[in-house]
């Protein structure tokens, strides 16, 4: 009987192993290289704008004075979108995963996914041509009755093309992302824990509070952050819907601007230092998105011990 010596390697299997691990390594490196390349491009191209004399930047007061109103505008639009979309999305996801009869759930899930397939320019056109017109009477009412709140200060925009309208359009656009991710997470709740809650005498809603939502919490946060990413970066819909202008506290007058729409609207005719300024604005948007993602990861990791992963 001849035993296979331990030191001999069996050619073909080992080669396949090496090729696969090499390919996986290369894929990992490419992602890092692309990310690094984009960041490097943004920084290098942005340097002229960051170092130029204040008077040469658009507005004449330096890059900081130029960027901060549109940073605030971007955040306002994104926050409006999330405030509207998150409760609706979680409600729809819960309805599909735990309340709807099976046939209806499948159909509804399909319709929600379909919402994500609509191109953003169509949302923009709908928002500008239809929603803005239809919603302006509501803005007038808000200005008259709630005008003492700074965010509803009049006079309301006659066209309805305001940051609030843009936020509402964005909320419709992020709704499918948050809904379908939340639904997937809700469906993964272990039956074991749902039955534990029901067997204790929990109603359906109490079971959801006790077993489903705590289990799904990190997933919901991730879903919201992905929605936020889309809302922050969305360009076309905002560019079409918003009648942009200087930063204002009121959400129902024309004014405010987002970074993405600012870049899109100005880039085609820009040259020289103006291009650099817009790229620097892009760098700021990149950093905001990065910060949002890191905060989300931190929130998730803070509760790791209780996550059910162990």
């Amino acid at each position: 009987m001849t035993a296979t010596p331990l030191s001999s390697s069996q050619g073909a299997g080992r080669a396949g192993d090496k090729i696969f691990s090499g390919a996986a390594l290369a894929a990992g490196c490419i992602i890092l290289a692309v990310l690094f390349g984009v960041a490097l491009f943004l920084v290098v191209q942005a340097i002229p704008a960051l170092t130029a004399p204040a008077a040469e930047i658009q507005g004449g007061a330096g890059f900081f004075a130029y960027i901060w109103p549109i940073v605030i505008g971007t955040l306002i639009a994104a926050v409006i979108a999330l405030v509207i979309a998150t409760p609706i999305a979680i409600g729809v996801a819960l309805f599909i995963s735990h309340f709807a009869p099976r046939g209806l759930a499948a159909g509804l899930g399909y319709v929600v996914d379909l919402l994500a397939a609509i191109p953003s320019v169509i949302y923009g056109a709908w928002g500008a041509a239809f929603l803005a017109r239809e919603i302006s009477p509501a803005y007038n009412w808000l200005a008259e009755n709630m005008g003492w709140l700074p965010i509803f200060q009049g006079p309301a925009s006659a066209t309805g093309k305001t940051i609030l309208t843009a936020g509402i359009v964005l909320s419709v656009m992020v709704l499918p992302i948050i809904t379908s991710l939340s639904r997937e997470i809700f469906l993964q709740t272990p039956k074991l824990h749902e039955e534990a809650a029901l067997a204790l005498g929990a109603t359906r809603w109490e079971m959801i509070k006790m077993a489903v939502l705590p289990f799904a919490r990190p997933g919901i946060i991730s879903a919201i952050m992905l929605g936020l990413g889309r809302a922050l970066g969305e360009t076309m819909a905002v560019a079409l819907v918003l009648s942009s202008g200087a930063l204002t506290a009121s959400l129902i007058t024309s004014g405010n601007q987002t970074i993405a729409a600012e870049i899109a609207l100005n880039f085609p005719e820009a040259s020289g230092l103006k291009v650099s300024t817009l790229i620097a604005a892009g760098l700021v948007l990149f950093l905001i998105t990065l910060a949002v993602n890191m905060i989300a990861r931190w929130i998730i990791s803070r509760h790791k011990e209780f996550s059910g992963a162990n």
């Binding site: 824990h193 039955e195 534990a196 029901l198 067997a199 929990a202 289990f215």
Partner: peptide, 22 residues
């Protein structure tokens, strides 16, 4: 059924404490 279950407790095949609770 909710009232029934609150009076008749149940222990399952696999231990199922709620993982997110102390």
């Amino acid at each position: 059924p909710v009232t029934v279950r609150s009076q008749i407790g149940m222990v399952f095949q696999r231990p199922n404490p709620f993982p997110t609770m102390s």
